[in-house]
Design a protein around this nucleic acid. Structure first.
Length: 271
DNA sequence: AATAACACCTGTGTGC
DNA sequence: TGCACACAGGTGTTAT
């Protein structure tokens, strides 16, 4: 489900319910996520949640004793519910709060993760080598030009590479390249500064817009309140292979790049 | 070092 | 209606 906007929308949705709350319990019904949910995850019980941050697509729940690291994978979601809410299929974890609410983690495909990390979490192997946040100033043309220097692989794959920039998944990589008029198979190291400038701006613009719209509605994405996002109606290329380009009316092409669906307009995004 | 392929898992849609 | 198969928002690990 989630790319960066969906994770950020989730963070914003759950934050008010978690901030300054004491954790009264952690129920793990199914520990078989991407990695087994560790016993030390229980360290959060009795702690007060001091902050809810996001790094890339990881959600970080800070306490004085350590940080819980949550990743939603492909199909995960977090909801705030009354503790009495009946458990449904794939409801793997409950974080119980003194307020009587529960933060419930549901993940059909179980590609998600729920980990515990003693401070400081920046040293955690999963977070240590990540590139800059796309919406922060560290992601700019000069940085990107340097990061792509000499790279021969397709620009789309570089955009989706967490060492280059975090949080840009398949949907938004397709959308940003369309908006910037860059063919997804363009050799990354050969894109000039002018086009990179546009690309950086479009990545920021599209992610910002998607967050404002509440994330993309795909399949069953809902935010912490169970409401859908509204960005899907604004997608220009993703999921539209064979349909007409919104810009020029040409038929959109669809190919596979690293087994991921890649959609573009051959006229608006020349090689 | 860089790149490509594979792995994990369930649900859904399509074509026969 | 049933079945086989392709495909889906991610990303760490392994192979080339």
């Amino acid at each position: 489900m989630p790319e960066l906007p969906e994770v950020e929308v989730t963070r914003q949705g759950i934050s008010p319910h978690l901030l300054d709350q004491e954790v009264t319990g952690l129920t793990v019904r199914n520990a078989s996520l991407r990695w087994p949910v560790p016993e030390v995850a229980q360290q959060i019980v009795g702690q007060t949640i001091r902050g809810i941050r996001r790094r890339a697509k990881y959600l970080l729940l800070d306490t004085d004793a350590g940080t819980t690291i949550v990743h939603l994978g492909m199909s995960g979601s977090l909801r705030i519910l009354p503790k009495s809410t009946p458990v449904e299929k794939h409801d793997h974890i409950d974080l119980e709060l003194a307020s009587g609410k529960v933060l419930r983690f549901n993940d059909p495909r179980r590609f998600g993760a729920w980990l515990w990390c003693e401070l400081p979490e920046a040293a955690h192997p999963l977070l240590a080598k990540l590139g800059p946040e796309p919406l922060q100033s560290g992601f700019n043309v000069d940085y990107l030009a340097k990061a792509l220097e000499g790279k021969k692989k397709a620009i789309k794959l570089c955009l989706m590479d967490n060492h280059v920039v975090v949080g840009v998944g398949n949907i938004y990589a397709n959308e940003a390249l369309f908006a910037a008029g860059i063919h997804p198979q363009t050799e990354a190291g050969r894109i000039d500064m002018e086009r990179l400038t546009v690309l950086v701006a479009e990545v920021k613009q599209i992610l910002t817009q998607a967050i404002k719209q509440g994330g993309t509605t795909l399949k069953d994405f809902t935010n912490a309140e169970g409401k859908p996002g509204y960005f899907a109606q604004k997608l220009h290329v993703y999921g539209r292979g064979g349909e007409t380009c919104t810009q020029c009316g040409n038929l959109l092409s669809e190919i596979k790049l690293s087994q991921r669906a890649t959609v573009f307009c051959g006229l608006c995004q020349p090689r």
